[in-house]
Design a protein around this nucleic acid. Sequence first.
DNA 1: TCGTATGACTGGAACGTTCCAGGGCCAACT
DNA 2: AGTTGGCCCTGGAACGTTCCAGTCATACGA
Lengths: 333, 333
Amino acid sequence: MANAEARPTLADVAAHAGVSKSLVSLVMRDEPGAGPETRRRVLQAADQLGYHPDSRARLLRSGRSRLLGVVFGIQHAFHLDLVTALYTAARDRGYELALSAVTPDRDEAEATAGMLQDRCEALIMCGPRTPAAELAKLAARLPVIVLARNVRVTDVIRTADDEGLRQAVEYLNGLGHQRIAHIDGGRAPGAADRRRGYREAMAAHSLDTHNRIIEGGLSEEDGAAAARRLLDEGDRPTAITVFNDRSATGVLDVLTRAGLRVPEDISVVGYDDSHLARLAHINLTTIAQDTTEMTRLAVDRAIARIDGSELTNRALIVAPQLIIRGTTAPPAA
Amino acid sequence: MANAEARPTLADVAAHAGVSKSLVSLVMRDEPGAGPETRRRVLQAADQLGYHPDSRARLLRSGRSRLLGVVFGIQHAFHLDLVTALYTAARDRGYELALSAVTPDRDEAEATAGMLQDRCEALIMCGPRTPAAELAKLAARLPVIVLARNVRVTDVIRTADDEGLRQAVEYLNGLGHQRIAHIDGGRAPGAADRRRGYREAMAAHSLDTHNRIIEGGLSEEDGAAAARRLLDEGDRPTAITVFNDRSATGVLDVLTRAGLRVPEDISVVGYDDSHLARLAHINLTTIAQDTTEMTRLAVDRAIARIDGSELTNRALIVAPQLIIRGTTAPPAA
DNA sequence: TCGTATGACTGGAACGTTCCAGGGCCAACT
DNA sequence: AGTTGGCCCTGGAACGTTCCAGTCATACGA
């Protein structure tokens, strides 16, 4: 349909309104310098011709795109929450987002390469698994902001993940739990910090002897598998902290199917406060990452780098927050 | 970092390699017309200067972007599956994707407007809720392909949703079920067709008297709420067909918590075969929408429109397929 | 009355590509 | 020997904007 021949250009509108291209350009951008009557006439002409400015030419000439590239994993619930928040953070600062998804069939390298083509002014990467050396190379080409992963070569915005697990353990211990296990995230970004936080908190409350870390991962299946292993091994803990919400839903499922009641028989704490956790029928106690704050910082930092300010502080660390919902309770007496 | 002053251009590379801009252009595009030795020298120069072509200029000049815009809901598991498949379908045809997400804070109009600014050659919309009149206006500006919704004003690729529910009912009836309920999708795209399919299939198997449609929706919460209502009402069905997988997980959760075993006590069939359904611990019998085929068709159709072929057939309908997993079994004796 | 400031407008040069028409040059035909 | 036809390669004109330096009135202060 609608192959309306060539798209109209500034020149067409100019001719139609009997003014110069420059003037039309001014009017289209809502800049001062045109009389009200002319302005009206130009706008009318543009409307009549169905003119829409060509962003390619506009960007080429003005040199700026006001576009932030975002690389995220389409499978990761938490990344989706980040993207959601990034949209509003970027809009507040007058920027747009260009998304590039990592899928099972499209790896991070490809997703990143796609963005570079597009002339974004900065790149925001959600929990990237790209090696630090590669990230450094990227950062040499344009400002790179890494979200939710701890790395030294670029700007980083992340949650104090160790602190998050400390809060979880402390809260559970406060409820009376002692045998607290941790299903970890394996090699996922953030997993190491959360593991350490768990260990330190257990030690701080003299629960070392109950330390129990089960290897997990970031997907539902990882959580389910870990939970099955935990049940098989016997000596069941009374509470479990899980690497993330997604994995925790897998854990919950296995526990329920095994006939255990949550939280009466066993408590579960997730991580991320992704929208999964908030669903009424999951209603998961979890450690919230403050996506609003994180994305705001990420966008601000990106813009600061774009503007060329020399910044020293490369890592911004956001405080986590325990969200108490329905999957935790004191241990059975 | 790395504010390497102005980024190098074709001209810089040309000067550095001692050839003309045009030649560098050829080499960068991997076109024939350059000797192997010169080619090598040019590539080396480009690499040395860290040259990367500017896509804005490239697009401006060549008039094409080979870019397909995609509007999708970041909350919809099935849309994410579609996006995943679209990436590969587009790549196979030499196109790239530009994503624009609908979020709770960014409505479809905004997401669409964002795409129009951009240089995409066609727009693919996943289950859009935009009124038909608006879609028609859009379609006047550029080719629009609608996925997974039934509408008359644009090209449409969708699953035969009524047929999908027919398959579900037939299969359940074959297992021996008679009291088969349907938790519907309310006003969501596709819901009406699935409802109709359910009714027709029940009638076809003389199960009219057991017709039972519970109002649902597309989220987990909708499913959970509907399931609770169903249980409260008594006269429990032996099988439930649900509008989509996402809602079905909510249903499953409520059933399990109510102490019912799935599939021994009650069977559940989802819809979409989104990755949710495939998770080992959900393992949901479901009606698959063939995302691979749908996205392939969508991309092909988009390209055909871009190329200006006059096509008559505006709706392509893809066959659904029953995927039997672990949530269905014959009713208890 | 003259300069000069102000506002409305214009013309043309960028921006970094791609595309087109052609210019040498050499080998292979007539 | 002269023509032909490939190859490599070059120069310059687009593409549709924005930006800059002006022009030309008109109005204003002295």
